[in-house]
Design a protein around this nucleic acid. Structure first.
Lengths: 252, 252
DNA sequence: GTCAAGCCTATTGTATACAAGATATGATCT
DNA sequence: AGATCATATCTTGTATACAATAGGCTTGAC
């Protein structure tokens, strides 16, 4: 009953009729999306966390998730493990999975590291980027400008991500690129928040232009500084934003 | 059957014990290594990889590992997932787990990133380290010197790890500290290799002294440079080392 | 002899069963 | 009545059963 899959298979399960569904009241919306692809579960839970649908500190119930995706607990646990390894949730032994509470101080520290990595990527990109790579970055800058011109924060947010990813790739250090992407992904939700700050999109765009200029001219030190500042500003803006909400702040 | 287990699951100790200790059976090694602690499996496989007992490209057989630790495949798979998330192995869908082949180029890239992070930690440590922290770092430098004096590479290797960890802590950015530790751990095996290079231990020690000096004097830029170079040299030495012994090595 | 197609087997992936830990709940004693 | 211990119940963790897939092997045709 609780596992819709097993019932329709021709084989008979020994004593499968153990107990009638004791939680059948919960909504099971995903009726249509049987056959979830591997990784879908992970992505869905991640999305819930990043969008704030799952609040920090909240417990994630394995059984509920299993029902929601119409799978057993096994793949759900797998997904939870992966999310824990990325740092999005915390697995307390014998207690379960909880959405991680990230303090403001911790976020600022993460932005600080991100700034360093982006700066490094910029420095290397300025030295190593070839003709085609630079053209691609230029294109993405243009896309950012278009999005900004139409005041479309969602589009800007998306193009911005692509812009930075292109720089990671351009640095010629695949490991750095993957580490930077990982952190970028991790800070996604908080980056987005800043776009609400008035004029931030325009400022960001101006910074992007200077970054491209520096990379194009091959000025490694400048590219490093511009990118580092670009991210550092985001960290500060984020801190401002938070401070404006909460008067008391323990941000070291 | 494949799991010669389950029959003798006569775990005594009903629950009358009001002891707070949760792993009472830690030293109780029945048969092989019964009652493995959570995480032991992961550590053991990791150790095999880092020490080279499991060669790059080699396939890790779930069933064999399950037998070896006398557990079912479930916790083994869990351990493999974690190792995959750290990058030590690769999980090919429907194919299994394989020890990741790290090319020399990739390793150099990792050292490059490591150098940046260590440099950052040094810079911040120079600015933020307090009285006690510096004393602690000094102590660890002394321990390195002692180990070096007695030509004990194993001891030096261990003290070196503590020395760097102390600097990570001193930087006042816990996130950076954890990221640096993660990478340090990842490069562990390759770091160790370098100590075989003649005079490397002495050079390393000299570099350590300059690093401590820079941090003590509060010279952030210098501390950053010294640490960065310290790691960069390791990357270069590593490349030299590999180049010197592998004419026949299928590097990449 | 070579190649291809289809079965065979070995191994991964998923579901379910079962065990052990944790929390909630109720009974008993002071 | 309140506290404490015992138990009931729920949840996580692990074992096992089953399903599905990949790769090898056999067989048959050319």
């Amino acid at each position: 009953m609780e596992q819709g899959r097993g019932t329709q298979s021709s084989r008979s399960v020994p004593m499968a009729t153990s107990e009638p569904g004791q939680y059948e009241g919960a909504e099971r919306v995903e009726r249509s999306e049987r056959r979830v692809r591997r990784g879908d579960i992970r992505d869905a839970i991640e999305q819930d966390i990043l969008t704030g649908r799952s609040r920090p500190g909240e417990k994630l119930d394995e059984q509920a998730l299993a029902r929601r995706f119409d799978v057993s607990r096994t793949p759900v646990r797998e997904a939870l493990q992966q999310l824990a390894s990325v740092g999005l949730i915390e697995l307390k032994p014998n207690r379960g999975a909880f959405v991680r509470e990230v303090s403001i101080g911790e976020l600022i520290q993460m932005f600080e590291v991100m700034a360093e990595l982006e700066g490094m990527a910029g420095r290397l990109a300025a030295r190593r980027a070839g003709e085609g790579t630079i053209r691609r970055i230029r294109e993405l800058l243009l896309a950012c400008e278009t999005a900004a011109a139409s005041r479309d924060t969602d589009a800007y947010y998306a193009e911005n991500g692509r812009f930075h990813a292109a720089i990671y790739e351009a640095c010629g250090n695949a490991f750095l690129a993957s580490e930077a992407s990982r952190l970028h992904q991790r800070l996604k939700a908080y980056r987005r928040l800043q776009l609400r700050v008035p004029k931030r999109m325009e400022q960001s765009l101006a910074e992007h232009r200077r970054i491209v200029e520096a990379i194009e001219s091959g000025d490694a030190a400048l590219a490093e500084r511009e990118l580092k500042d670009h991210i550092a500003i985001q960290g500060e803006r984020f801190a401002d934003f938070v401070a404006s909400l909460s008067v008391r702040d323990a941000a070291e």
